[in-house]
Simulated assay, not measured.
Amino acid sequence: MSREKKPLDQGERGAAGAASPASLYDTLSAAMVRFQYRPGERLNEGAIARDLGVSRTPVREALSKLVAAGLIDHEPGHGFFRRKLDPKEIFDLYELRQQIEVSAVRLAVHRATPQQLDDVDAILDRSMAAAHEASVEIVVGFDEQFHDAITRLTGNVEMLRSLQLINARIRFVRWIDMRGRRGGTQGEHRAILDAMKARDAARGCDLMEAHVQRRLEQIVEAVREGYASIYMGNVA
């Protein structure tokens, strides 16, 4: 590939030694989320295929799916490119995330069973136990798991799918943003869940709105730190 970078993780392989389509997509998705390619960098399909030991056709198919997921861009006649870290785009995604998650709390308060809320409580307990010693990547994984679990309680699969697509596109910024605020995030999660278990939809929605709003107010700084991490080789 152009410029030296950490080799791509080849993921799971089938019996014939070729990466499965799903694992190929996951491998490339992880590379894009981690900004193994710099913002605006052209993606060399041939080099990627050689790294992963596959032909260019499945690579191109996986890259096309990444375009659909919003992680990369395609310019006809020029190829595929890693999307830039655009503060306005990130802000818009966080704003949409806020609307989805507030609505999810409102629906889940009325639809979730006590056992389902207890299951989310168990997720939160595990994340809080690991928060102080786990890597930022693991902490962000727990964070997404909590928010996914709340949205899953709505029973609305399209709402959950939309949230997961948003989270994939903002994951890198969340890594940057999470570095210094693990404890605060866990406390906010606990307060949101307590309100939901009390069936207090208004309080739960207010808490979720404030939880995401604090991130909205820090987007520009998080993007600035993200660029510094990428170009200093200190990617999460």
Results as ranks from 00 to 15, higher is better:
109 V>A: 02
109 V>K: 01
110 H>S: 14
111 R>Y: 09
111 R>C: 12
112 A>F: 01
113 T>V: 05
117 L>N: 13
117 L>V: 10
117 L>H: 11
117 L>D: 12
118 D>Q: 14
119 D>K: 06
121 D>E: 15
121 D>Y: 06
121 D>M: 07
122 A>C: 03
122 A>V: 09
124 L>C: 06
125 D>H: 13
126 R>K: 11
126 R>I: 03
128 M>W: 05
128 M>H: 11
130 A>P: 00
130 A>G: 02
131 A>H: 10
132 H>R: 15
132 H>E: 15
132 H>A: 14
133 E>M: 04
134 A>Q: 12
138 I>V: 15
139 V>K: 13
141 G>L: 06
142 F>R: 08
146 F>K: 10
146 F>T: 13
147 H>D: 08
148 D>K: 10
148 D>Y: 12
149 A>G: 06
149 A>P: 01
151 T>R: 05
152 R>A: 15
153 L>A: 08
155 G>D: 13
156 N>S: 12
156 N>H: 15
156 N>G: 11
157 V>H: 11
158 E>W: 03
158 E>Y: 08
158 E>I: 00
160 L>M: 03
160 L>H: 12
163 L>P: 01
167 N>W: 03
167 N>E: 15
168 A>F: 00
168 A>G: 04
169 R>M: 04
170 I>C: 09
171 R>K: 15
172 F>D: 12
172 F>M: 05
174 R>W: 04
174 R>Y: 02
175 W>P: 00
175 W>A: 04
176 I>C: 05
178 M>Q: 10
180 G>N: 15
180 G>E: 15
180 G>W: 08
180 G>C: 08
183 G>Y: 10
184 G>T: 05
184 G>D: 13
184 G>N: 07
185 T>F: 02
185 T>V: 10
185 T>L: 05
186 Q>W: 08
188 E>Q: 15
188 E>W: 03
189 H>T: 09
189 H>G: 07
191 A>R: 14
193 L>K: 07
194 D>L: 10
197 K>I: 11
197 K>P: 13
198 A>C: 02
199 R>M: 05
201 A>R: 09
201 A>P: 08
202 A>R: 06
203 R>C: 02
205 C>A: 15
205 C>L: 00
206 D>W: 02
208 M>W: 04
208 M>C: 05
210 A>F: 00
210 A>C: 02
211 H>S: 06
211 H>V: 01
211 H>A: 02
216 L>P: 01
216 L>W: 04
216 L>S: 02
219 I>Q: 09
219 I>G: 03
219 I>E: 09
219 I>N: 07
220 V>W: 03
228 A>W: 10
229 S>Y: 11
229 S>T: 02
230 I>A: 10
